[in-house]
Design a protein around this nucleic acid. Sequence first.
DNA 1: CTTATATTTAGACTAAATCTAAAATAAGAA
DNA 2: TTCTTATTTTAGATTTAGTCTAAATATAAG
Lengths: 132, 132
Amino acid sequence: MNTNIRLTPQRKAVLEVIKNSNDHPTAGDIIERLARDGYHFAYGTVYNSLKYLTDNGLIRELKLGEGVSRYDGNLHDHHHLQCKICGKIDEVDHDISPQWLKDIEKETGFAIESHQVMLKGICPSCREGDSG
Amino acid sequence: MNTNIRLTPQRKAVLEVIKNSNDHPTAGDIIERLARDGYHFAYGTVYNSLKYLTDNGLIRELKLGEGVSRYDGNLHDHHHLQCKICGKIDEVDHDISPQWLKDIEKETGFAIESHQVMLKGICPSCREGDSG
DNA sequence: CTTATATTTAGACTAAATCTAAAATAAGAA
DNA sequence: TTCTTATTTTAGATTTAGTCTAAATATAAG
């Protein structure tokens, strides 16, 4: 992690929005929230800031298979669980077994650098209303 | 799974391309391969066919966090491993522990319906040339 | 102050995928 | 077969997420 991080006003504002969100916003969500706070940055600036903040370990980029990137201010290792009905994303602290990863490395010869588990299901509030 | 599957010539050709591929092609790849085989279907037809085949369980859609969907004719449960350098996708048969999923269901209250593990790393042939 | 480097901006551009309305095809009924 | 209805395909416009570019601005170093 870079110790010489340059937080321009734009990057700072983007970081603030993410730190103040707990719903894993997309770039679009972030631009919307910045605008609500009176910041009207260029589209590209927000993307550049997100990349810079991600590269420097201040935020995390999540790709949950929706075709959109989401951003997370929670730097602790965790996985995600998305409701198929309402789209809500929950965080899960359990990590998968390191032995499982080692077995896969042995089997495939890959050096595994990162892993992400994506769980899809029905959240408690959507389950209440289901019929099956 | 629907027992009354209607395989139009378009759907059949799309299915064939996927069954004959072992590299998890994207829609773009599939259109390219169809064209090589002399099939020039409308863009939308290929997407409709992919959706139809996926919905009917004849193929699987993979969302590996690249922002593109890939398609897989291997219907057996498995996970995927992508090389950060060359982009090659490998298949992994090991499945994660059912107990792990149960623990998460208990913790979150979600009814988990599907899970996908995405592993990123460096493949054996790219490792040979690395300097770190 | 001057020069070099980094960043932001507006807007054009790209890629993946969806949508739409018309045309074509297939299936079912008489 | 012919008529009617439902399904599928087609071409192309549209949407969405994100990248790229060149000029303008800001910051840092000498």
